[in-house]
């Protein structure tokens, strides 16, 4: 039997759900049970789509995938390999967040858009031990960003996501 271990990390502004499982794991989800709007793939590949539809997106290792278009739909997930995925979840269905991964050549966090829009923003460590302003982050740690500050980044082989509530 294919299985998946799922656990949650709960924050004041958003939550992360962690899914670790084997190839060919299948999950069907009612929209009322999920507020996931982005997935980050730490390991493996999975297809996420709408039930009874050919439409799907691939959630792949090292990528942040926008799944906001599936938020109100009955979703299915099918892993193509053993997998380890992290979902970024809003606290309420009505919230909209923007998110992106920090690029490997981004030595200073590009907060241009966030400063312009003056949004509350967060840096989330998805993988590895990235170093930000000389502080080493661990997996699933996060920090609220101060737009008046500069943040020097060394991904150090890890992965960081930048999110702000729109």
């Amino acid at each position: 039997m294919t299985t998946c271990r799922r656990f949650h990390r709960i924050g004041n502004d958003f939550t992360l759900c962690v899914n670790i499982g084997k190839k060919d794991y299948v999950l069907a989800e009612n929209p009322i049970d999920s507020n996931t709007i982005f997935y980050y793939g730490i390991k493996g590949i999975g297809k996420l789509g709408t039930m009874f539809s050919e439409d799907y997106v691939l959630v792949e290792e090292g990528e942040l995938v926008d799944v906001r278009s599936y938020l109100h739909k009955f979703r299915i997930f099918h892993s193509q390999e053993d997998f380890h995925l992290v979902g970024f979840n809003t606290l309420e269905k009505g919230q909209n967040w923007e998110g992106r991964l920090i690029k490997s050549d981004e030595e200073v966090l590009d907060l241009h858009v966030i400063r312009e829009l003056y949004k509350i923003s967060f840096l989330v460590c998805f993988d590895g031990k990235p170093i930000v302003n000389d502080k080493t982050m661990k997996r699933y740690e996060y920090a609220r960003l101060d737009v008046s500050k500069e943040y020097k980044v060394n991904l150090n082989g890890g992965a960081l996501g930048l999110f702000y509530k729109n």
């Binding site: 656990f7 949650h8 990390r9 709960i10 924050g11 992360l16 502080k135 661990k138 996060y142 943040y151």
Partner: peptide, 11 residues
């Protein structure tokens, strides 16, 4: 357990 608070840090 499986559900824990996210660890917030200062940068």
């Amino acid at each position: 357990g499986t559900d824990n608070e996210l660890n917030e840090i200062e940068l």
